[in-house]
Structures are given as structure tokens and as C-alpha cells.
Design a protein around this nucleic acid. Structure first.
Lengths: 132, 132
DNA sequence: CCGTATCCCCAGGGATACTG
DNA sequence: CAGTATCCCTGGGGATACGG
């Protein structure tokens, strides 16, 4: 009888805990304070470069540009140039970025919603570890 | 007639986009590659220090300790010492950390699930921006 | 308006060794 | 086992100025 060999389905061995897995680099790029803020900010629609910089306070043009390039390379953000004078550039979430951002937004909101508990924990921790 | 003045309910003005809001610091602490990996790793239950270090590859004791302390201070992780010989220390998620980690895990899984699309985007980007 | 180009700087992370 | 203690070091930001 001919054995029907059931090949183990090759599930992509992506695993963020494997130091060699490229997902780890991607996660590290997303797990960046600026990246998260940018994604969260773009959730409500396209936005120009300067508007982004103004909304996300304390970020320099250089760093914002770098962060946007990385997000663009990973296919999370798209960049569109309009030939106005002076030039206008709009950034928006790609469908891929949109999906990711939903989770990112949950994260940001979670922090806001639980900030009181976090502050309390910090106080307790600091009190317990108080130095002379 | 006496106006019944409806006081605007004072919702905590927590907002990650405000540079002065403490939520921003917390988000920055969570938005850290090591912090995310630690939280994700602790999701399945308590874990000892060395096990944690082995599972999360490429992290040194120093950095792991620092990361755990921050998470502990924010009330996301708890540390329990057992007077065995040699000493055993277990780290686990607090209820607060548990809730957060659910979202974190979604994020990690999202990356793994969408890695193929991300890789494709990277290739396209690199091809479009090829030098010379 | 939307970025580069420079310069500078130090905090944070790596490597290694040691201890309760 | 679970951390400190040191030393080193670099690259990621910050500030500023300029350019298309």
C-alpha cells in the first residue's frame, strides 16, 4: 500500500523570541516611542510633515524624518508629494499600517486609562525603596 | 431662576501627545524592545531570572535587571524571592501587567503574522531607492 | 514647506569579572 | 542562582544652520 505521507505544513517559523528572526528587528523598530506616536497620530488620516512635527512635540525634523523613512520602508506609512509651491508632503497609513495602528492605539489608550494605577505603583515602589 | 450649572467632569487630562504628560514617559518605557519581550515572555506564568535571560536571547544580566526594575516600579511586574539555596527569584505579571501584556502580545503576533508583507515592502522600497 | 548637512554629546547598552 | 561592579564605547538623538 502506498503510504500517504502528510508533509508537515511549513508554517513560517517567525518568532520574536528567536534572536535571528527578522521579526525581532521589526518589533524593535515599532517598539520605539517616536514610531508609536507617529502611527497613533496618523490614525485619523493623512498629515503633512510640519503638522506631524507640531503635534508630536519635542521631536526634531531629523528624527521625525528618520522615523518616517523606517516606517515607510516597512510598508506601514506612505509618502505622497504634491507639487505645490512650496512643496507639500503628506504621510498616511497604508492598509498594513492601519491594521497595526489599531493595536498601537489600544496600547496608548491603555496607558492613559491606567495612569493612576501606575502612579500609585511608582509611589509605593519608591516608598519601599527609600534611601535614608 | 437658578441656573443648574453642570460642571464639566474633570476627566484626567492624560494624553500621550502632550510632551509634559507623564503617560508619555510610561509609553516610552513600554515602547522598548526589551520591555515588550519580557512582558510577552511572562504571559505564560512566573519565570525565574536566568530562565528569562535564556529565553530572551541576546540580553545581558545588567540590562535585564534594569528593565525588570522599571517594570516593577510601574507596577507591571512583581518580584518574589524564595529562600532556597541558592536563592530563587521569580518574576510574574501583576494584574495590571497582565492586562497590558494582552495588548503587547497582540502586537508581537501581528508582526509575526504580517512579516511576509513587511519583507515585501522592504524589498520594494530598497529596489525603488537603489543607488547608482 | 520639507527636508539635509554638520557637529556634538553622553546615556545607555555590551562585555567581562566578581559576590552573597 | 541572581544579581552588582566596572569599564568601555558608539550611535542615536539634540541643536543649529542651510538648501531646493
Amino acid at each position: 500500500m502506498t503510504e500517504s505521507v502528510v508533509l508537515k505544513k511549513e508554517i513560517p517559523p517567525y518568532n520574536v523570541f528567536d534572536e535571528r528572526c527578522p521579526t525581532r528587528d521589526v518589533l524593535a523598530r515599532i517598539a520605539d516611542k517616536w514610531a508609536l506616536l507617529i502611527l497613533a497620530r496618523l490614525e485619523n488620516g493623512p498629515m503633512r510633515f510640519n503638522k506631524l512635527q507640531r503635534d508630536i512635540q519635542r521631536i526634531t525634523k531629523k528624527v521625525l524624518t528618520q522615523a518616517l523613512r523606517k516606517l515607510e520602508r516597512d510598508g506601514l506609512v506612505s509618502r505622497e508629494v504634491f507639487a505645490t509651491v512650496p512643496v507639500t508632503v503628506e504621510y498616511s497609513l497604508t492598509p498594513l499600517g492601519q491594521a497595526l495602528t489599531e493595536t498601537v492605539t489600544v496600547l496608548a489608550h491603555w496607558v492613559e486609562s491606567n495612569m493612576d494605577a501606575i502612579v500609585a505603583a511608582q509611589s509605593a515602589y519608591d516608598a519601599a525603596n527609600a534611601q535614608t
